[in-house]
Design a protein around this nucleic acid. Structure first.
Length: 424
RNA sequence: GGAAGGAUCGCAUAGUGGUCGAGUGCGCCGCCUUGGAAAGGCGGUAAGUCUUAACGGGCUUCGAGGGUUCAAAUCCCUCUCCUUCCGCCA
């Protein structure tokens, strides 16, 4: 969340930012509640001070009566405060982070500037197939039985593709750890309060999050949740920063309202495995950390020999907690583009600088050299989202004879030695 | 899942209704001492929030929430987590 003091002192900027990000929120109402809340706080504090003073030692009967009355007043004020507090918090949580000055202002979420390219979309001297067809021919994914057992948008990975999930994880870890990250396997469930503190809305309408009945737990949509919650309510020594983590988890998404979007095969699914990078840094370092995360993501896909482009989310496409987000969009020869022709770019990674927005929500601070406590900056970035990477590999490395070449860098990580996937 | 015990300021502990936001030891920081260090001495050492130009002052927080009371770390209820034992189990 944003600092209410900051909102108070920068009303115009905050208003404009909300508008740029297409977030419709009543800032006047929020500030009104804030003022009322503080007024009530001062009132109750004064009454409490009075009561505390009166209750020192043994009060007389008369004083006791007086204190009783004050106690009732305090209770009434507290109730009022509580009501205001609930609405205040609901509104405050919805105010998005401020925006990096270099981000393009646009009200069209497809208006993301392309910053860079790697490689060339492959030219095939045959009709390239999409990953669904490839996987079917090579017996790599079972959608029908997954639908029977778990429903739509689930899948069984089989044979070489199951092995390749392990290889991808190992390959990515080998790269990320070179950069000084500590490896983790995280819980796949987390408490609602953690999601909320990070800027997710787990129980809202059209939420992307699965909730566990009769509990305050949610299935995580990304290890960003569990890695972001890791240091909740802690004060970190400045010398211990930056903290660089890389975490493997399963990710669960309801994909509510995503029916119209491209969703063939394993592109948009309810469950997948992801390796996520996460950093806690001092505020002066967050921009560099963001560049580092993007560079590692590039290293991963360059190694896999998959063409991609780098896009910079415009204001309309930015998530609430981020001031800036870069995506890698890989070339997917089997994905139809807007005009219906085969081949299009599709998101495979995403890295965000959330500055102190999430740290404030989860109360994560560091003690600086002067002994002052400040909020850390928090950043996340996909090292690999397995299903998306698998699509890119299958579609980019398919051969005329129907086989799929295994990228050189993955070979040594495959649990069983092989150079290609071909029909058995 | 059942039984018992526990959760206090970085760590270890004291504290069973008002003199407790909280003592002691360790750790840490500063100063004194020293050629330098150790030992010793002295002082300091949670966070949040409101208010103030500042000094300062108020309020909240003793796992969380609720209750009793003029007054709660302390009494009552619920929950969470930890430890031990039993059961079950990958």
């Amino acid at each position: 969340m944003l600092d209410i003091k900051f909102i108070r002192e920068n009303q115009d900027k905050v208003r404009e930012n909300c508008k740029n990000r297409l977030v419709d929120i009543d800032i006047d109402r929020l500030l009104g509640l804030d003022e009322e809340k503080r007024k009530l706080q001062t009132l109750t504090d004064e009454l409490r001070a009075k009561r505390n003073a009166g209750s020192k030692g043994k009060p007389t009967q008369e004083q006791i009566e007086e204190m009783k009355k004050i106690g009732d007043e305090i209770s009434a004020l507290e109730e009022k405060q509580r009501m205001i507090g609930v609405e205040f918090r609901t509104l405050l949580l919805r105010v998005p982070n401020m925006t990096h000055p270099d981000v393009r202002v646009s009200d069209n979420e497809d208006d993301n500037p392309v910053l860079d390219f790697f490689g060339e979309p492959a030219k095939f001297d045959f009709e390239p197939k999409d990953h669904v067809e490839i996987a079917e021919k090579l017996d790599l994914i079972d959608f029908d039985r997954a639908a029977k057992v778990s429903g739509a948008k689930f899948y069984y990975l089989k044979n070489e593709l199951a092995l390749m999930e392990f290889a991808l994880i190992q390959y990515v870890l080998s790269i990320v750890m070179k950069h000084g990250f500590t490896p983790f396997i995280t819980p796949d469930l987390a408490k609602q309060e953690v999601l909320e503190g990070l800027g997710y809305n787990p129980r809202g309408e059209s939420t992307q999050v699965y909730n566990i009945e009769n509990s305050d737990l949610c299935l995580i949509g990304t290890a960003e949740i569990t890695m972001g919650g890791l240091h909740m309510d802690e004060i970190i020594k400045e010398d211990d920063l930056p903290k660089k983590y890389v975490a493997v988890s399963h990710c669960f998404r309801t994909e509510a309202g995503a029916y119209s979007k491209f969703s063939k095969g394993i592109f948009r699914v309810h469950q997948f495995t992801k390796v996520e990078m996460f950093q806690y840094v001092t505020p002066d370092k967050s921009e560099d950390a963001h560049s580092e995360l993007l560079a590692i993501e590039r290293e991963v896909f360059e190694g896999l020999e998959i063409p991609f482009r780098v896009v910079d989310h415009c204001t309309a496409d930015l998530g609430g907690p981020a001031i800036r987000t870069f995506d890698l969009e890989a070339w997917m020869p089997g994905k139809p583009n807007k005009d219906g022709a085969m081949g299009d770019w599709a998101e495979v990674t995403s890295t965000s600088n959330c500055t102190d927005y999430q740290a404030r929500g989860l109360n994560i601070r560091y003690k600086d050299k002067n002994g002052e406590n400040n909020f850390v900056h928090m950043l996340n970035g996909t090292a690999v989202a397995v299903t998306r990477a698998l699509i890119a590999i299958l579609e980019n490395h398919q051969q005329a004879d129907g086989s799929v070449k295994i990228p050189e860098v993955l070979k040594k990580f495959m649990p069983v030695a092989m150079d290609e996937i071909r029909k058995k």
